[in-house]
């Protein structure tokens, strides 16, 4: 069966545009609000990444840390995150959802139990930031057996041979990290440079869906539209933080931003 993630990419290809992926943190700033945000932005987004907040996130920059700490402070638990996904899917049956987080969350619940919860709440894919290849092989296979996409990351430091191996062991999507940075850094390399690496990945397997993330904002997104997909995370979290501190509605603010992002890639 073709995965919803794959379907989303083929639809975008038909429309001759990159897929728009967003990242928001589950439970930011509350369970209810984060669900409302997902529902509000979903019509303009092709794939939704939902962050599992963790309090020692070694690969996340300030924006996502702020969102994650806020969500944890407001009481989000792992099991609530599955409830949020399940609720979201009630109104957005065909919209793919990817959970993104750190391995300790999965390890504490147990891999089997975690995947069972994913299955029950109709999670389409997983990104585990600190479980790289080849250590991830075993868990990636468990995901595959449950028809859950295990999405691997590639970075500018990934060697050619490693890149080939990772792509060989990949499911329906890989995620290229645009630059040496945690999430939310200023885009410090040129679009040309990013696309050069992107093309290298595509050359290894032209059919593989490759998305680019890190440093993508309203300003930078239109320079990278050649990619199969583009992820906006920190910029969105920052917008939500901004709305919260101003006392304005984070749901509408996020929705407006995503609308704008969408208009820049069509």
């Amino acid at each position: 069966m073709i995965s919803k993630i794959n379907l989303a990419f083929s639809q975008c290809k038909k429309e001759n545009r990159p897929a728009l992926l967003t990242y928001t943190v589950a439970g930011d700033n509350t369970k209810k609000k984060s669900l409302e945000i997902l529902n509000a932005i979903a019509p303009y987004v092709d794939i939704l990444e939902i962050g599992i907040p963790h309090n020692t996130p070694v690969a996340d920059g300030g924006q996502i840390q702020t969102s994650a700490y806020r969500a944890i402070k407001n009481g989000i638990k792992v099991k609530d995150i599955f409830k949020i996904v399940k609720q979201f899917k009630k109104n957005n049956l065909n919209k793919p959802v990817i959970l993104m987080g750190y391995y300790n969350t999965i390890f504490q619940l147990g891999e089997r139990s975690f995947l069972k919860h994913c299955k029950r709440s109709d999670v389409d894919g997983l990104i585990v930031v600190d479980l790289p290849w080849p250590e991830n092989k075993n868990f990636a296979n468990k995901c595959k057996k449950q028809s859950i996409n295990f999405i691997q990351l590639l970075s500018p430091t990934t060697s050619d041979i490693r890149m080939k191996n990772i792509i060989k062991d990949s499911h329906d999507m890989v995620y290229y990290i645009s630059m040496l940075s945690t999430t939310g850094g200023r885009l410090k390399v040129s679009a040309k440079e990013i696309l050069k690496n992107y093309n290298k990945i595509k050359k290894i397997n032209p059919k593989q869906n490759v998305v680019i993330g890190f440093g993508i904002t309203e300003k930078t997104i239109s320079s990278l539209t050649k990619a199969d997909g583009l992820v906006v995370g920190s910029a969105l979290c920052k917008t939500i933080s901004g709305a919260l501190s101003r006392g304005t509605n984070p749901v509408r603010t996020a929705e407006n931003m995503v609308k704008k992002l969408r208009s820049k890639i069509i």
Binding site: A59, P132, E135, Q152, L154, S155, T157, T158, R162, I177
Partner: peptide, 12 residues
């Protein structure tokens, strides 16, 4: 132990 690290740090 092990190396539970982001992809970017694999090479360094």
């Amino acid at each position: 132990g092990g190396n539970f690290i982001p992809e970017t740090l694999k090479k360094p």
